[in-house]
Amino acid sequence: MNLDTLRARFGPAVGASVVFRGETSLTVDREAVVALCECLRDEEALAFDFLADLCGVDRHPADPRFEVVYHLYSVRHGHRLRLRVPVGEADPVVDSVTGVWETADWHERECFDLFGIRFRNHPDLRRILLPDDFEGHPLRKDFPLEGDGRP
C-alpha cells in the first residue's frame, strides 16, 4: 500500500503515518477528510470500499482534545488503514463521510451522542443510544463514571 500518491495530492493535509504492530495509522487534517476518503475509496490501488468502524477518542487533557478515528478495509485487496482526525474542543466539528460510505450514518450518530462531536452535512444527526433529552456526552473523560460528578 503506497501512500505517496495521497501526499502528492493532498500535501500537508496528510500528516505523519505511524506503523505499530503492523497497522498503519495516518493523521489527516479535518478539512481534507471527505476528499481524502473519496480518493481512498476510488483509487484502484487502494480501493478502501468498506468502512469497518468510525469512533471518537477523548485524549483529555491533550490539545487538540478529540480524535475521530476511521478504520478502513478493502474488500478487494484485503488491506486495512486507520485514519486519525484531530478535533479541538472549542469547535468539535468534522465533515460527515456518509456521502462516501453509507455505513458512516449510525457510527457518526453514535460518536455525536457519546462525545458531542458534530458531523457537518450528516443527514440525520440525532442521539442514537441515549435518550433525546439526555444531558452531556458520557464518553468524555470529564463525564463521571457514576453519580453526578459532585464530590
Binding site: A52, D53, C55, V57, D58, R59, V69, H71, E102, T103, D105, W106, H107
Partner: peptide, 14 residues
Amino acid sequence: VRLKVRPPSFVNLQ
C-alpha cells in the same frame, strides 16, 4: 484510554 467495540449487529441492523 479507549475501548471501542465494532459490533457486527449494530452495523448490520442499519
